[in-house]
Design a protein around this nucleic acid. Structure first.
Length: 235
DNA sequence: AACCAGGACGTGA
DNA sequence: TCACGTCATGGT
């Protein structure tokens, strides 16, 4: 297993867990159980999402709400917004501060997330149906590199690799990077050895989250799956 | 009962 | 640049 590559990691995870199918959507759940979490909203093997503007908006909103937040809490907030029929930009912007805060409260950081959603919704209107560039997204207050990439990759189907704390933890556990590696460096490491492919990016990110949820809880972990890959990085 | 979750921002070195 | 404090609810 000398000179193992990122692609090897992808293959190992893919063989272990099978197709994932991200992003979770309220309308597309319940078909199959997932190994982790309470949400059963994945659509393995089906990459035709989002199919509607409503779904695209739900992904953008979810990407913002899930910042440093467990997904089940995000789902509660999304259900609140759905109940308010606020998964449309105009309706979202029509909510009062109190209404919006109450809706997103279960996902935590309710004040800042209220502002983040507003700022994003206004920018979204300005983009007028065009696909926002990464730079476009990064100008929005509350949208950082990971959220921008998540929106690009999952809401707009752009080949933008998403790396997150789980990704960082995984590659750190393999000994390929330090935990303090920057977002951009980690992203570059991932993309350099992967084909520029939306499906591959979506699956790889989802697989790393799935694996990390199983093995990299904040406790001494033991990684059996990737044991043979870690420790050496060809160079 | 602490600990932490699919981050980002503001501040001060 | 970079390290650190802050934001907040809910599950384990």
């Amino acid at each position: 297993m000398n000179g193992a590559s990122v692609l090897d990691v992808y293959r190992i995870l893919s063989d272990a867990y099978g197709p994932q199918g991200w992003w979770p959507l309220l309308e597309v759940r319940g078909s199959q159980p997932t190994a982790t979490g309470t949400l059963k909203g994945y659509h393995p093997g089906d990459f035709s999402f989002p199919r509607t503007e409503r779904q695209r908006l739900e992904i953008c909103v979810g990407a913002i709400l899930t910042q440093n937040t467990a997904w089940p809490n995000v789902e509660k907030a999304l259900l609140n917004l759905e109940r308010l029929e606020a998964l449309m930009v105009t309706r979202l912007l029509a909510l009062s501060d109190a209404e919006l805060e109450d809706a997103v409260r279960p996902s935590g950081y309710f004040r800042s997330k209220r502002r983040k959603l507003r700022e994003w919704a206004l920018a979204h209107q300005d983009w007028a149906g065009r696909t926002p560039s990464r730079a476009d997204l990064l100008t929005v207050w509350g949208i950082g590199p990971e959220t921008a990439d998540s929106i690009r990759l999952y809401a707009y189907g752009q080949p933008e690799m998403v790396v997150d704390t789980y990704t960082r933890r995984l590659f750190a556990a393999l000994g390929w990077v330090r935990e303090t590696v920057s977002y951009d460096d980690l992203k570059e490491l991932c993309t350099r050895e992967l084909p520029l492919d939306v499906v591959v990016y979506q699956e790889f990110h989802a697989l790393m989250v799935e694996h990390a949820k199983r093995c990299y809880r904040r406790q001494p972990w033991r990684d059996d799956l990737l044991r043979d890959v870690g420790g050496r990085r060809g160079g």
